[in-house]
């Protein structure tokens, strides 16, 4: 078998791209730990480098994701993992759930209202605007809602990830500027604003913040899936 034929083999492609993805992520993480700038975030640097590599080697998204989809699928077990911090913080959550609910409702309304208004002002309409509305939620929820309200789940998935990248960066700035007293507010900010990526960031800040962000992320998703039909009625 020639080297070119070997390169075209799906299993080889899968192994190469999976390894490249993991390796670039690990390197990007090390670099970010050494120089903690927001634009050096692993979630921004690793995909950018991979994209350059894919373009240079003329590899399509379909070819890339066929071999690396198992990494995305690990988000499933990762979601299950949130049971641990949520269980450990159960006393705090039981005592403070009304506060979290208030933050979730206010945050979700702000997300939909500001996305809609800004898109309107910038002249973005139709499917693209609808696809922007559910982007604060974690991917599976967001795609569900997007399909229901007439957006494109595919585009929404991209916006969700972009929200995660931007949100994890913006979250640090907001955290530094606002005079917040409770860890509850710090966790909720990441959970409502930037779903899984924000929750991962919150987890790095503190265990309590991470647990609250994880819980809030899940609850916001559930709340919005339940409320989506109502939002459609309001938009008509």
């Amino acid at each position: 078998m020639t080297a070119a034929a070997l390169w075209r083999e799906p299993l080889v492609q899968a192994a190469v791209w999976s390894l490249a993805t993991i390796l670039l992520y690990v390197v990007a993480k090390r670099v970010h730990r050494r120089w903690p700038r927001w634009w050096l975030m692993p979630l921004a640097v690793a995909p950018a480098l991979l994209m350059i590599a894919a373009l240079a080697l003329n590899v399509s998204y379909r070819d890339y994701i066929r071999g690396t989809h198992w990494l995305v699928a690990l988000l499933g077990p990762a979601t299950v993992a949130f049971a641990v911090p949520i269980y450990e913080q159960r006393a705090l959550i039981r005592r403070r759930w009304p506060l979290l609910l208030a933050g979730m409702v206010a945050g979700s309304l702000t997300a939909v209202a500001t996305s809609w208004a800004l898109a309107y002002v910038l002249g973005i309409d139709g499917e693209l605007r609808l696809s922007l509305l559910p982007r604060s939620m974690s991917t599976p929820f967001a795609m569900e809602v997007s399909g229901e309200i007439g957006g494109s789940p595919d585009l929404t998935a991209i916006f969700v990830v972009l929200t995660g990248i931007i949100g994890a960066a913006v979250g640090d700035v907001v955290l530094a500027r606002l005079p917040l007293r409770s860890t509850l507010a710090k966790g909720a900010l990441f959970g409502v604003g930037a779903h899984g990526a924000g929750t991962a960031r919150a987890h790095q800040i503190g265990r309590e913040e991470g647990a609250i962000a994880g819980l809030v992320m899940v609850l916001v998703g559930l709340m919005n899936v339940a409320l989506a039909p109502l939002i459609i009625q309001l938009m008509k």
């Binding site: 995909p47 399509s60 641990v84």
Partner: peptide, 28 residues
């Protein structure tokens, strides 16, 4: 909780990796 705690903490710490391939959808 101890039966899954180490695994869970590991998954949560490395969760950003699982988002990386999804960003490549931008290519399309």
């Amino acid at each position: 909780v101890g039966s899954v705690k180490r695994g869970a903490n590991w998954m949560l710490a490395e969760m950003l990796l699982f988002f990386v391939p999804a960003v490549l959808a931008l290519l399309d």
